[in-house]
């Protein structure tokens, strides 16, 4: 059995006087120890909400979470706040996109790192400080003892993200969720951070859920890739297979619309028509149908089922892109 099994996860936001929003609409995937699983999609596809739901960080009021998330025998979605706090930061940790807003600006870095150690590992005073310095050193922050006394604003963006990673890995979590961990960073810093994450996964056999919009990042480090659209997984495959033979028109569209460094000028990009706003509710057919060139009559009316293939590749489409016609 996998370390984390997410089954039919759904998140619905209800607000009085406003339309009900199905942000996540039946997402299933699983993560093994030492595996990197990606949730990829554009803004509004539900990738971040998925991670927040798993961590129990959605507001109690207004957000309705359904389905199940089995973490090594524990049902995460059924836990009360108290037991969730014991797991969060210890067994499951999260790295957010913007390190400046996820670190407390008025508390020195050191206290923010030792806090986790004290809470979850029962360390105290000197031992915690020593361990905190070790952690900062491990994530590549030079002169860690001095850094411990500094405030977040005194660190650069890349260093802040490293500090955040140090906090996340402080208790050697078995599952790490990284929500767009490098989106706010420059490419050279991004390369450093991705390398660090890869190292952590390799060395401590941590499972990593990588949430990103960047297919380039995914291509470099993820084992299993789930492409999300409008709150559902539309295609799921192992890394090489997904890029070599994408079947869902949305995945193909995404790949064709990315300018690539290794492709010359003058080659026209093939954008996807319309925008994420042109979406059909899944209950009325394929949500991607309004933007899809391969739409057929069967796309509308009934929600398309996930079609599995023998290689573990599956896609949610009634008229998939043939294998040889790859992007």
């Amino acid at each position: 059995m996998a370390l984390l099994d997410v089954e039919d996860l759904s998140v619905t936001f209800r607000r009085r006087g406003q339309r009900t929003v199905h942000a996540v609409d039946g997402v299933s995937f699983s993560v093994d120890a030492g595996e990197v699983v990606a949730l990829v999609g554009e803004s509004g596809c539900g990738k971040s909400v998925t991670s927040l739901a798993l961590m129990g960080l959605l507001p109690r009021r207004g957000a309705q979470v359904g389905g199940s998330a089995n973490f090594d025998g524990t049902e995460l979605l059924a836990l009360d706040q108290r037991s969730m706090r014991d797991i969060r930061g210890k067994d499951v940790a999260m790295i957010f996109q913007d390190p400046l807003s996820s670190l407390n600006p008025v508390i020195p870095i050191g206290i923010q790192v030792t806090e986790v150690l004290v809470r979850h590992r029962g360390m105290s005073g000197d031992a915690a400080r020593k361990e905190a310095a070790n952690l900062l050193d491990r994530v590549g922050i030079p002169d860690p003892r001095r850094r411990l006394k500094e405030y977040p604003h005194q660190l650069s963006g890349g260093m802040r993200q490293r500090a955040l990673i140090a906090i996340a890995v402080a208790c050697q979590p078995r599952l790490l969720i990284a929500d767009e961990p490098t989106t706010a960073l420059d490419v050279t810093i991004q390369a450093q951070i991705l390398e660090l994450l890869k190292e952590l996964v390799r060395d401590s056999n941590t499972a990593l859920i990588m949430i990103t919009h960047d297919l380039g990042v995914v291509a470099g480090m993820c084992d299993m890739i789930n492409v999300l659209y409008a709150g559902r997984v539309v295609e799921s495959a192992r890394r090489k297979e997904l890029f070599a033979a994408p079947r869902h028109p949305y995945t193909v569209g995404l790949l064709r619309s990315i300018p690539r460094l290794d492709v010359g000028r003058g080659e026209k990009l093939t954008p996807i028509r319309g925008s994420v706003r042109d979406v059909l509710p899944w209950s009325e057919g394929c949500a991607f149908a309004p933007r899809c060139d391969r739409r057929i009559d069967a796309s509308i009316g009934e929600p398309p089922p996930m079609v599995p293939t023998h290689t573990g590749h599956s896609y949610r489409c009634v008229n998939p892109v043939p294998v040889e016609e790859k992007a």
Partner: peptide, 21 residues
């Protein structure tokens, strides 16, 4: 450092990591 959306390319190429900021 620029990621390329192609696993074959990503696995082959070699990165020059820069120190610091």
């Amino acid at each position: 450092a620029v990621p390329v959306p192609d696993p074959e390319v990503e696995d082959r190429r070699e990165r020059i990591l820069l120190a610091g900021d």
